[in-house]
Amino acid sequence: MATVFKKTSMLTDAPSHYCPGCTHGVAHRLTAEVIEELGYKENVVGVAPVGCAVFAYNYFNCDMQQAAHGRAPAVATGIKRVLGEDTLVFAYQGDGDLASIGLAEIVHSAARGENFTVIFINNAIYGMTGGQMAPTTLLGQKATTCQAGRDPKVNGNPIKICEMLSTLDGVAYVERVALGSVGGIRKAKRALTKAFKYQIEKKGFTLVEMLSTCPTNWRMTPKQAMDYVNEEMQKIYPPGVFKEVK
């Protein structure tokens, strides 16, 4: 019998702890597939964040480091600089990790043009801690620390990471994709492939932001969560390529 589909060997067989309808699984698989397809599965180090993806080191089937909250880009910097340009390095971070507590680390890694790839999961909420407001929470969106919905006068405004990082020299490639549809997932894989290729070509800092779901903390069904990504999130966070140095 012909094999028509098989799971990438860059993922372990460990059962995932992610909630039903969460797109972390999709993002993991795409990342793993791209690394394998590029032929780097035995020449790659990943960095796991603090947040829902903290256990990423259990799932990616390669050398992994678990970083302190927000510090994955600094850890990835240390790894990449000592291992050299021929080893692929990636950091996998959520929105609280990257856009709040770790803002300095991501901005300065980008400005230095650190030659690694960041997978940025933006689901507009703190998932692991139970649904608190994130730096990327939409205006009006409810969270356990802004229960009437995010009010800019009280809670500030959403941070647009791709737009911000694209202004920095040293950034080679920044794209935002949305995991709310099959088309979006396909685009996400193309974006990841590009990002890792640019890293292999030593072009500099690369980041792919993935608009993601959190049905549990959004209090939605998986289907409603997908619709929310496609209808609400994309209004504030339009997908697209924000910077590409060819």
Partner: peptide, 16 residues
């Protein structure tokens, strides 16, 4: 960019 980043770069480099 900060002492926080420096020690985490040490973490990454030492881990590698």
């Amino acid at each position: 960019e900060s002492e926080v980043a420096a020690i985490n770069m040490v973490y990454g480099a030492a881990g590698a």
